[in-house]
Structure formats: structure tokens, C-alpha cells
Simulated scan of single mutants.
Amino acid sequence: MTKKPRLAVLLGDPAGVGPEMGVKLLARAENRDAAELLLIAPPSVLAAGEKIAGTKLDVIALRPGDPLRFEAGRITHLVQPEPAGFAKLGECSVPAGQAVLQALTVATELAKHGAVQGILFAPLNKHSLRLAGMDEEDELRFMQQRFEVPGFTCEFNITDQLWTSRVTSHVPLREVADLITQESVGEAVHIIDKALRSAGIARPRIAVSGLNPHAGDGGSIGLEEIEVIAPAVERLKRDGLDASGPWSPDTVFIAARRGDFDAVVSMYHDQGQIAMKLMGFERGVTLHGGLPVPVATSASGSAFDIAGKGIARIDGLQHAFDLCVQIAARA
């Protein structure tokens, strides 16, 4: 692309810190210079975020159906309908979930038609989304359905230079082992390899975690490593990927933090998330892999406990913004 990428920006769950974080991010002149920014939000959610953040944004207000237009240094605000009800700070609710689902739907439609090249959203709350009627496992699968993307998608979590993907995500632990197959392991590695290349890493070094303690300890603590994960890694090597493992889950992140790998593929959500959040919760980024445009957010959640206090940090959301701009500009 020869011009700035255009990003859709969403303010997240109205009952959490999302609106405050989104306004703080948009208030930074360097961010408004880095991309054309299309804010998708109801007026009340924007106003609440401005009040908590203590700043007023300079916006061009458009109604749905108006031609999109942008001006240097300003934010275009695509005004959304107000949610049917009040989203009380610090509480999950149907109105809060409805506001987020509406914004996600509009953003994916715009991306499908090429009107935006990336989507950035402030923290949302999955329980509010489900209260509002989301049937999918999470917001990634919700967007996957609207993008009509078949096959494997995955959340990437990024802290500084280290990336992770996972074979299973928001599913009960009792279901995890049955979902670990050679095909699912291969898909999780291929998708993060492709994403790292799109972010500028020519040949990503990818560690694949085991499932069981000590990676099965030679078969004495489970056979998944021998029967499933190791054969999947060998197949990946034959495909030309720089993949290795299965590594013991309790030590692989020590090597990764040391710089031995660009990414770790874990078998389930907490196996990777706990390690990554300990290494840099405030700086962490979540990138949704497998979608046609980059979709990013901070790794931190909606933080109901500090909602409305004006103290939410935006380090992670800033890193998410920077990564989204970088990938969108390379597309």
C-alpha cells in the first residue's frame, strides 16, 4: 500500500475500561497520523469514555450509509444506534454485549468490502457477548462466521517479540485431549508461521509444547506426545517449517523468553496464557489469526474492578494498534 492503512476502532465493553482505553489511544496525535481511523461506537459510549479519560476527541460524525470521509489529524466517527438499555459499569449485561456485537458486525462488513484494512478493539467481555446472544465460542469465531472464513483460526498472544498460538482455545479442559490431533497441531503451527512472516520474520522458529507434564516423560505420563505431537512436528519439518518439539510445557517458555524461539504453540489456553501474562500482562497483545485482515486488541480484559476510575493503562492496546498498522500497511 502507498497510503496509510485505514483501521476500524471499537471501544469494547461499555461496562469496562474499553471506552476509556480507546479514547486515550485515539487522543494520541501520533496514532492519528499513523492511520486513517474509523471509530465505530454509539455516542453515549464515546461520551462515557471521554468523560472517564478526561479528554474530548475531535471527530467527524457520520451516520450509517453516509460516504466515508477522513481528514488529517481527525477521527471519523461512524455513529451507531444506542443499546436498548443501560450498561452499568462493572457488570455484565445484555446492552453491553449488544453494543459490542453491533460494532463487530459493522467492522467485519466494512472489512469484507475493503473499506478498512484492519480492526482494533478495546477489551470486551465474553459473558456479556453471550448474554446478548452470541452463540459462537468467542469473538474470533463470531467474526470468522461473518467473514465466511472456513477452516482453522486461532488467537495469537504476543508479549514483546514472543508470539504464541494454541491448538485449542475457549473449551473445557476435559475436552482438550480429544481435540489434539496431528491435523490440529499442524494447523496451529502453519497459521502462526504465516502470521509471523506477514509481520516481517522471514523464517520463524517455532517451539511446539507437549500436552502432558514433562511432555509425557517418555510415555509414562501419557502418549499424546509420542502418538500425535511428535509425528505432527516431523510432518511440519518436511513441509519446510522450522518447528521443534514436543517441548516440556513447564520449561519451554524459559527458553522462549531467552530468545531461542519466535513463537510457542501450546496445546490449550492456560498453558500459554499464564506464562505470557506473567511475562508482560500490561504490554500483551491478542491478534486474531486466520481472518482476511488483522484484528487486534490488548491481552488485558475488561477490568470491571477499575472501570470508571480513569486509571486504565493502554500499553497493550498501543502495541496492538502498532502491530495492526504494521500488518495492514504490508498487505
Rank of each mutant, 00 (worst) to 15 (best):
G216M: 06
P172T: 02
P64D: 11
V295E: 07
T105M: 09
A132M: 10
A215N: 00
D66W: 00
A35Y: 03
L124Q: 10
A299D: 15
G200N: 04
R28Q: 14
R283C: 10
A41T: 15
Q271K: 06
P14M: 07
F261E: 03
A307D: 01
K112E: 10
E227V: 08
K4N: 09
R205K: 12
E148G: 08
V106K: 08
V167I: 01
V176T: 05
K126Y: 05
A299I: 11
A53N: 02
L278N: 13
F86Q: 09
W247Y: 11
V116R: 00
L173K: 01
A312N: 01
I229F: 04
Q145K: 15
A328F: 01
L162M: 09
I192A: 07
D239N: 04
K194Q: 11
I254W: 10
V252G: 00
V59M: 15
L196K: 03
H113W: 09
A232Q: 02
A35M: 07
T286S: 11
E282T: 12
H77P: 09
D66I: 00
D260R: 11
A303S: 02
A195W: 14
F152A: 00
L78W: 11
H170Q: 02
V94T: 04
G73E: 08
G216H: 06
V23R: 10
S44H: 05
K3D: 15
A96F: 03
Q98R: 14
A328V: 04
A8V: 01
P204T: 07
Q271W: 04
H214F: 12
A15D: 10
